[in-house]
């Protein structure tokens, strides 16, 4: 199997070296290149077309947020995983809306970064676990306050419940147990949700839930 080609974007040389140390021993990854700021990152992303970019947020000149936006727009097949000291959920929301497929905190166990790179490569989203909790909580609050939008309004009460459980990462069987209904009924609800929201995969469903939680939430 081809290795996941990673572009490392980080203004601190010491962290670039650290990431290299970590990625070099992974059998399924290789460092395709490095960049030290946002502008270099966009250029390198276009030249190398990596599978995944590991992106620092705070950088001199063009920062990680703007670089992510540009890369996702110009090279939609290139995924971005944010790696940052910043734990603020506001940065996190901005990165996800800019198109990042992952958000990992520096200081978290490095296995999270590896998992995020693999998950992003699959076209799915990896989030620093405490942020996932926050996200679901925010999303539910918005639903609770009736701040629902677009197609979400088409869903029945039951379908929304199923959506919430799916977004929290429960399997069909777990949802069936929680709602005391049959797994095939869950499957039916799920199909209806996907159809009403015009989604194809579970990852899209997750993304949708994220976006629902995001809409108008931030200034």
């Amino acid at each position: 199997m081809a290795k996941i080609r990673v572009l490392v974007v980080e203004d601190h040389a010491i962290v670039r070296q650290g990431i290299r140390l970590l990625l070099d021993v992974q059998p399924d990854m290789e460092v395709a290149g490095e960049a030290a700021d946002g502008r270099e990152a966009i250029e390198a992303a276009g030249r190398l077309l990596p599978d995944v970019v590991v992106m620092d947020l705070a950088m001199p000149g063009l920062n990680g947020l703007e670089a992510t936006r540009a890369i996702r727009k110009r090279f939609p097949n290139v995924q971005v995983v944010a790696l940052t000291v910043h734990e603020s959920e506001d940065y996190f929301f901005q990165m996800i809306t800019a198109g990042a497929a992952g958000y990992v905190l520096k200081g978290a166990d490095p296995s999270q970064l590896l998992e995020a790179i693999r998950t992003a490569h699959q076209g799915e989203v990896f989030l620093h676990p405490p942020l996932t909790t926050k996200l679901v909580r925010d999303y539910l609050r918005r639903v609770g306050e009736g701040e629902v939008t677009e197609s979400y309004g088409l869903l029945t009460e039951r379908e929304r419940e199923v959506l919430r459980l799916l977004a929290e990462g429960h399997t069909n069987q777990e949802i069936a147990d929680i709602l005391t209904i049959g797994p095939s009924t869950v499957q039916t609800h799920r199909a209806h949700i996907m159809e009403k929201l015009r989604l194809r995969k579970r990852s899209e469903l997750m993304n949708y839930a994220i976006r629902q939680g995001l809409l108008d939430l931030r200034p």
């Binding site: 601190h12 010491i14 962290v15 070296q17 650290g18 990431i19 140390l21 970590l22 070099d24 021993v25 992974q26 059998p27 705070a58 000291v85 520096k106 200081g107 166990d109 490095p110 296995s111």
Partner: peptide
């Protein structure tokens, strides 16, 4: 942020490499 936090990040990554079975 620039010195302490980045140094510790690199340290963590290096340690994670040592841990790797290879």
């Amino acid at each position: 942020h620039d010195d302490m936090a980045q140094g510790l990040t690199a340290l963590l990554m290096g340690l994670a490499r040592l841990e790797h079975p290879t």
